[in-house]
């Protein structure tokens, strides 16, 4: 019994320590973000990497989520004759919840992993040491551009995801469930509030930051050869996903809890 408690306690402390190191890393990076030199070229490159190349996967995920959402809520709501609400259900779930979380998780798998692998490889091949020796701060050169790109590009992706998700719901409602197009669109617009979209975009920005942060952190601190880099990649994706789910709750609470 004591043994189990001790193990739980140790794991808990270990987790706290890891969180503390991540927060310190973020603090250092944010400190470097506001001090020159800046690397606009690198920020641009990361924005393309995150924004443009993640577009297909985010588009597909949100489109199909919107479609399945319409179908599910129709069959569910039909039991108490509330089919009319599905337009509202689709648009609210997409903007407030599904688009940011799904895009965040997708980007964590795609971008977070790639960042951890790239920076991890630079660490184990001494390229990060070489940066330092060549008078370039690795935080400014590697970490800051990724954080900026993550925090700015994910909201853009989510905005597109919102639209595609609603469009997916619309397609299913009109062509499969025989809704009236004009009425569906009106119901979509009627109950949607500005805050619904904004909260989703704020989430997206935080998630984008978290994905880039964990990717950079695990890459930066990777040890050993190829195995260490592989470990860093896995850790980056897992911790990004957990943080996204936790922060998703916190931000929802901040926006909507009365």
């Amino acid at each position: 019994m004591i043994g189990i408690l001790a193990a739980i306690g140790r794991a808990f402390l270990e987790g706290l320590a890891a969180l503390g190191r991540l927060v310190m890393f973020a603090g250092t990076a944010l400190g470097h973000m506001v001090r020159p030199p800046f690397y606009p070229r690198l920020i641009g490159r990361q924005m393309i990497e995150i924004g443009y190349f993640s577009l297909p996967v985010v588009a597909l995920t949100t489109l199909f989520s919107g479609m399945v959402l319409a179908l599910q809520s129709y069959t569910g709501f039909a039991r108490f004759s509330a089919e009319g609400a599905i337009a509202t259900v689709v648009v609210l779930s997409m903007t407030r919840e599904l688009a940011p979380v799904l895009a965040g998780l997708m980007v964590a798998g795609r971008i977070g992993a790639a960042m951890a692998a790239e920076i991890g490889t630079m660490r184990v091949t001494e390229q990060i040491d070489a940066l330092t020796v060549l008078s370039t701060d690795p935080y400014k050169y590697l970490v800051v551009p990724r954080l900026i790109a993550g925090a700015t590009m994910l909201p853009l992706l989510v905005l597109i995801g919102d639209i595609l998700g609603v469009f997916g719901g619309y397609l299913v409602a009109i062509y499969k469930l025989d809704f009236n197009a004009a009425a569906y669109l009106r119901r979509t617009a009627d109950y949607l509030e500005f805050m619904d979209v904004v909260s989703g975009l704020v989430k997206a920005s935080v998630f984008g930051f978290l994905v880039a942060l964990t990717g950079c952190y695990h890459g930066y601190n990777s040890k050993g050869g190829a195995q260490g880099v592989g470990q860093a990649t896995t850790n980056a994706v897992v911790s990004a996903s957990i943080l996204i789910l936790v922060f998703n709750y916190i931000i929802t609470e901040l926006f909507f809890a009365k």
Partner: peptide, 25 residues
């Protein structure tokens, strides 16, 4: 410094590696 394992930046072409400190620093 010449690193034992070279430590060249593999995301940059050779000339930008050589000119790195001149441009960035």
């Amino acid at each position: 410094m010449l690193f034992q394992g070279s430590a060249l930046f593999d995301s940059l072409p050779v000339w930008q590696n050589v000119a790195f400190r001149l441009i960035q620093g």
